[in-house]
Each structure stands twice: as C-alpha cells, then as structure tokens.
Amino acid sequence: MLRGGFNFAGGEETPSGLSGAAARSVLLVGQAGAAPWPHFLRWRQRQSQTIADPLDTWSREMIGAVAKKFGARAVSPSDTPYLPFQQWAMQAEGLKPSPLGILMHPQYGLWHAYRGALLFEDEIGLPEPGDVIHLCDACLEKPCLKSCPVDAYSADGFAHKTCLAHVRGDNGAPCRTGGCLDRNACPYGAAYRYPPQAQAFHMAALAGV
C-alpha cells in the first residue's frame, strides 16, 4: 500500500532516479497489519526453500513491477548503501519513533512497515502530512518497556546482544514463537497485530534461528 511521499527540497542531496538523474520525489510503499502475509506465503511456496531473505526478495519483486510500470526506480530498506527510510517515513507521514524505535502510527500502532520506495525524477503533487497525535506521549504506563524478560529496551536504547542471547536461549521460546513481548505489550493498533506465524518469521530472521 502507498504510505505517503514528498518532494525533495531544492539543493538537497538525493538518490538517483531511474535514468541516473537526481530524484525529485519519493513515494513510500509498505504495509499495515498482516494483509500481505497470505500473498507472501503463496509466493514463498513456489520458491526454493534455500532462498535468502525471502520477504525482501518478494517485496523487491512486487514493488519493482510497479516501478517499471510507472517509470520509477525502486529501492529497498536493505539496499546498500542504506537510504534514510525512517527519516523519509517521518517526513511523509508525520510520525515519531516509539520507545522501541519503531515509528508509532495513530491507527496501526507498531504494526506496520515500509518495504520499499519509488523514486521519480519529476516532482509529484503531494499533500503535506497533517498534524499527527503521537500516542506514546499520552501513554504513561509504557508497558512496551516493562514486558521484556531481559529489559532489552530502555532509555539507553536497544541492547541488541542481550536480546539475541535471550531469544536464542532456553528461555526464549515465547519470543521465538510469538514475537517481541515488548512490542506486543503496546495497547495501540491491536487490530493490526501480526499473527504469531508472521511474528515468529520476523524473530527468526532477526535472531538467525
């Protein structure tokens, strides 16, 4: 689904478009909730089970087909050198990061993602994002910082190695099968929460298990 976009400011250093000239506009593409999951699984069944990064591969294939149709260059968050997708998303949709680092959406909560972007060499008429209520500001209890058994998230940031050691260890089964406990503790956007199978897939990719 289209996740918003914007025109780059004049004089701003931008990535190149399809022909190699500087891009003038960017449209973000992603998901809200788990609507793409069944489509991905059907595609996955037709692929080699040894394919690396299957979700990235599928996303590139789907978004690349749209880019070809509309004369845009498709880019992905996992492309290197890395592009500032989170900064683009904040500019396009007016969102702010949650305590977990994931951007908080006023409707979808933490259950959304950006899978790619389309870069155009012409400016596109795009509306400015309106004022967005940042739900984390009104959340006093912050359950997202109290549910991890190893306190991987804190005011000091994300303890990546601590998280991975727990997920890979004997006590990490709830995280491996049901996803991040801190993320699931967030009360917002519950209707869009990814199903356990999807969360287990993402956790396995993160932890390499």
Rank of each mutant, 00 (worst) to 15 (best):
Y114I: 15
F158Q: 03
R60H: 11
F85H: 13
P81C: 14
G109H: 06
K96F: 03
A89D: 02
A207N: 01
Y188M: 13
V75E: 08
P106R: 05
R60V: 03
H166R: 01
Q86S: 14
Y114R: 11
G125R: 15
N171L: 10
S25I: 02
P195I: 12
F201W: 13
L103S: 07
T57N: 04
S78H: 09
L100H: 03
S98G: 01
W88E: 13
L119G: 02
G101H: 05
K161E: 14
R24P: 00
C148S: 10
F40W: 10
A198G: 07
A200D: 12
C136G: 06
D131V: 15
S98L: 02
K161F: 02
C139I: 12
R176H: 08
G10Y: 00
A191M: 12
P84G: 09
H105S: 12
Q197K: 13
N171F: 03
A190E: 15
Q86D: 15
A138F: 14
P187A: 06
G178E: 07
G10D: 08
D182M: 03
A23T: 08
P38Y: 03
P15S: 02
A185I: 10
L164I: 06
I124V: 14
S48T: 06
P196F: 08
M104N: 02
F201L: 03
F8R: 00
G101L: 06
P149F: 10
S147Q: 15
H112A: 12
C136A: 10
A92H: 05
V150A: 08
R168N: 11
V150S: 09
G11K: 00
A32F: 07
H105I: 13
F70A: 01
E13R: 11
R42I: 00
T50L: 13
P15K: 00
V26P: 11
P36N: 04
G30C: 06
R176F: 07
P97R: 06
D156G: 06
G178K: 12
Y82C: 11
K96M: 08
V209N: 14
R24F: 03
Q91F: 00
C186Q: 07
M1I: 09
L110P: 09
R60P: 03
G11V: 00
R60W: 04
W88A: 09
S48A: 11
V167H: 06
G101R: 03
H39A: 13
A155H: 05
C163R: 02
W37T: 03
C180F: 05
G116Q: 06
P195T: 13
A190V: 15
A198Q: 15
I63G: 04
A92T: 01
E141C: 02
W43V: 01
G157K: 09
C186N: 08
P36L: 06
T162Q: 05
H166I: 01
P54W: 07
P127M: 11
G30W: 05
V132H: 09
P38Q: 07
A52G: 09
Q31M: 11
G130V: 14
A32W: 02
A198Y: 14
G94Q: 09
Q31I: 03
H202G: 12
P143W: 05
A165H: 04
A117W: 04
V167N: 01
S147V: 05
C186R: 03
V132I: 15
T162C: 00
A205K: 11
A21R: 14
D53N: 12
P129C: 13
Q107T: 15
